[in-house]
Design a protein around this nucleic acid. Sequence first.
RNA 1: GCGGACGUGGUGGAAUUGGUAUACACAACAGACUUAAAAUCUGUCGAGCUACGCUCAUGCGGGUUCAAGUCCCGCCGUCCGCACCA
Length: 859
Amino acid sequence: MSRYNPKEVEPKWQQAWSEAKAFETKDDSAQKKYFVLEMFPYPSGRIHIGHVRNYAMGDVIARYKKACGFNVLHPMGWDAFGMPAENAAMQTGSHPAKWTRSNIEIMRDQLKQMGLSIDWSREFATCDPEYYVHQQRMFLDFWKRGFAYRKESMVNWDPVDQTVLANEQVIDGKGWRSGAPVERRTLSQWFFKITDEADDLLAALDDGRLAGWPENVRTMQKNWIGRSKGLEMKFRFVDGTNAPTGQKDGIEVFTTRPDTLYGASFVAISPDHPIAAALAQNDSGLAGFIAECQKTGTSEEAIEKAEKRGYKLPLEMAHPFDDRKLPVYVANFVLMGYGTGAVFGCPAHDQRDLDFARKYDLPVPPVVLPQDADPTTFTIENESYVGPGAIYNSDFLNGLDTKEAIAKAIAKIEEMGLGKGTTQYRLRDWGVSRQRYWGCPIPAIHCEKCGIVPVPEKDLPVILPEEADFSVPGNPLDRHPTWKHVDCPECGAKARRETDTCDTFVDSSWYFARFASQPESKPVDPKIADYWLPVDQYIGGIEHAILHLLYARYFTRMMKQSGYLTVDEPFANLFTQGMVVHETYRDEKGNWVLPEDVIIEKGTARRLDDGSSVKIGPIEKMSKSKKNVVSPEAIAAQYGADAARWFMLSDSPPERDVEWTDSGVEGAWRLINRVWDTVSAGASAAQNVDLSKPNVTDADKPLRQATHSAIAGITDDIEHFRFNKAIARVYEFLNALKKADKGAGDWAKAEALSALARLISPFIPHLAEECWAVLGGKGLVCDAPWPIADRELLAKDELMIGVQVNGKRRGEIAVAADADKDTVEQVALSDETIKRHIDGLTIRKVVVVPGRIVNIVAN
RNA sequence: GCGGACGUGGUGGAAUUGGUAUACACAACAGACUUAAAAUCUGUCGAGCUACGCUCAUGCGGGUUCAAGUCCCGCCGUCCGCACCA
């Protein structure tokens, strides 16, 4: 018996699949479809073990669904635009396109070596002009429809790298790459009006449209959208107040607690509020205060520690309901980005306002009385009261509960013409402008006379210039000698091309639709896209729970409203898989050490080269910086792709993190050999069996039961994404096969092996093909139908059920599966062991749960 | 602070609706084969005890139930997300 050799077997079957075009999918609308998609990779250079886990999961689903008779679409492509390519260009001088293309070549080969059932004929990269031309086409469409627009917005500007930074790229007020203090700048940028869809994006999370999504992702999106209902209202300047010129007659504030309006004791505005800026022009103290506020970091920690601070303005506001005059402060805790950038302070019922009021010695009038509190003695000390209660000290609101008072206060303010009830979102419009080279150019032209005009459709695509200078920071498109100089398409005068490119999240917001249908002349053919969409199963990392998944949901809505698609939710079922983690190692000098350079014996680790001791650190997400990575190529070279795939799916539930261990992959390798040994030992007998002509005896029953319960169990486990359990059942089946082997006839053995080959094929497809071939199976196992469990065999004639006395398990009895309760009770009561336990006791009650358990209550 | 998830052997984990807790694997130990090792195969493997059996074990403390890892209440701990959001 020859040892299984994946180095020969795996490439052989990969070629066979490719030659048979086994996974090339037809747009056959007569057949029921299944679209399975894993989040497409960024071509960073090589695939990592996390990719293997992600794609192995998708491949199990894809191969299983194909075997079940679905028309399966399982495509692959490349999220190819983005910063790393440009950084590489800056560091090594290699052009981003060249760098990206060569990474794609390498990674495509690596993925093919994993034996994934992918329709490679649909492959594309987002940096292909054939892809992004349609993105530009849609951009123009969205612009025309008002979904895309330009506005001035405050950005983090890195003066050294000459670029806009995302909030996550600002660390302690400094650029993450350059280390230079970040400036705030106002730039005119392109935005998508995602806030227009906020309500529907939110509603779909709850109304069943996303029933196939994990609860935690839906919750995260809900919080991210962050809807709150309240009142937007104006506080008027007191007569005689010297209001800044250009300002209207008051300050707009937003509140969710208009019921506490009588508790107001000040008004506070954000340091970024236009009124603050206007007053700062003639007040250097204020200007200094604002500058200081802007310096404080936006990190969690900085916010936690930041003291509530304010700067009193020479303004006074009139209380809307009585004749109090309220002071106005610029306060560091008021955010310009939420609501109107101004609030009224109600210290008794808001902790921040209370901290502020104590510091600046402002009044703290309570207006909400907790239940059972005494109105004459209730006071606020250092903790505000934010709970429910009855309104008091509040004239026309007195006696109402919070909810009623909110409604009445809003009605009153509306009646007074000072404001109206509104809904606020935490979600901001999606800024898509990036001042980078390696992205999809935004198809617009700036003309002095005509303003910003769209690039005419006949001039699309706007293609990136091949030559560009990456030697200095900044946007290579902006400083390109010729690219941006064009004539205005409307008046013909000299004009300037838009040099912003799209956020790469735009590229990944519709790629799934392009996989479904890729006509030359338009983004998608609606009829074909309609057949394939939505994606039936989407699989990816939890790190995309908010941004990518929200943007794709929004983009799909824009596409629907523009007539490209008919679905509004792109992903019917979402699965977020866990990470691959590994121990970390550091040598005596504190340097990180690669696992392949470490040898571990009896719990102590040392370097492989010089034998010096190595400290084993915590198990963490694999990262290049901590060197706790393993190379999928090395694993595949040693054990084959099947072993790597098998191990990635065994042990841990798919949604949880899995720890990579050498013993784990060795265990997978053992399994592969066990399967091969079992199958090749039975192959010659099986080849002579005609499975279509059953030939069984009673002696075959144990084996056939093992076979059919394996089929039933593994099917159910795959359907429910329990790959670790499915794998455990394969082991159980193998164990049972070995035990039952001797008594069973050739037909039952052949049936078992045939089922085994098909059951493992989603997980370890190369070995499955090899087994299928030696067993004499027809064609390829990847084209073979999924085995079907015989229900009759699953129903056992006799069951072993537990017997409890007073809730404690005391014995076990064998009863016929269809025995009635009385019979079961009699068998239990006459069991010798049970008799001993109830000896001398009076039986009060006997609970019989058919097929499960008997419990005798006695004392 | 708000929201969510989780807590079971030496380890990863299983236990469908409340119904025989610890499937399956890893590690460990013993044995077979071998001159030897590796590989492979067989067996043992929650803890304790006065061991043919009994007692105790699913983070801790209560509760409901004939029966609780599972349901309810209160703690403790770990992880994740969001956060001066008015």
